[in-house]
């Protein structure tokens, strides 16, 4: 297999894992899929580092592996264990089938939206960058359709993975400094959201964000 077909394979894994995360409601499974997504992202970075013989990309790949494939999915999985199960509640606003349909539509929209970019550079990686945008849209979909706090955090992570994927596939990765700052920010943001979720369990006994409806202008 050539290097570029391996990159295509990893990109496909990225998109598919995103679609499945959107349709599942089980946090532990979403955590595993997020790990897969992080691995695929790291694989893309490593493959590009190998192809272009760039030390910077190797370091970025390592960073992606640690943050997006190990630490963040681990946080989601540990949250899944801590959170009380609420059996009678559906965790999603839409059914599995609807979710798959929306993801399909998002992917088409993403392909259409990246047409103006592909005329700049017709190489396969730039074409694959529509996968990054599709993941961003699927992340938004998860953010909107999931009702549980951690489900929304997962959506946010998928969205961020999508942006990172766009960065790698379209531009050979963003500069190391930006990736470093971005990962650090992401890590802190997720830690803070996790801490807020823990407080939610204490104060409300649930992590259903629909319960957060006291504030507003009436």
């Amino acid at each position: 297999m050539t290097n570029s077909s391996l990159i295509d394979l990893a990109s496909a894994a990225l998109l598919l894992s995103g679609v499945f995360i959107a349709s599942y409601n089980d946090l532990a499974r979403q955590g595993s899929l997020l790990r897969l997504q992080g691995l695929a992202l790291a694989a893309i970075a490593f493959l590009m580092a190998f192809e272009h013989n760039s030390l910077e990309l190797w370091i970025v790949g390592l960073l992606v592996l640690v943050v997006r494939a190990i630490v963040l999915p681990g946080l989601v999985k540990s949250a899944a264990k801590r959170i009380p199960t609420e059996k009678d509640r559906s965790h999603s606003r839409v059914s599995n089938t609807t979710s798959l349909l929306i993801s399909g539509a998002s992917t088409i929209v993403a392909y259409l939206a990246t047409i103006p970019l592909s005329h700049l550079d017709s190489s396969s990686t730039t074409k694959a960058s529509s996968i990054g945008l599709a993941l961003v849209l699927i992340g938004v979909q998860i953010l909107i359709t999931k009702r549980m706090a951690v489900g929304q955090i997962v959506g946010f992570l998928v969205l961020d993975n999508g942006i990172a994927a766009f960065g790698f596939l379209a531009t050979l990765g963003v500069p190391l400094l930006l990736e470093l700052g971005g990962s650090l920010d992401l890590l802190f943001a997720i830690l803070i959201m996790g801490a807020l979720t823990d407080r939610m369990i204490v104060k409300f006994g649930t992590t259903d964000v629909d319960e957060l409806s006291e504030l507003g202008d009436r």
């Binding site: 946010f156 959201m193 807020l196 957060l212 006291e214």
Partner: peptide, 11 residues
């Protein structure tokens, strides 16, 4: 209430 505000702000 402040927890609700913080969550919405962060998201």
């Amino acid at each position: 209430l402040s927890l609700e505000a913080a969550w919405k702000y962060a998201m």
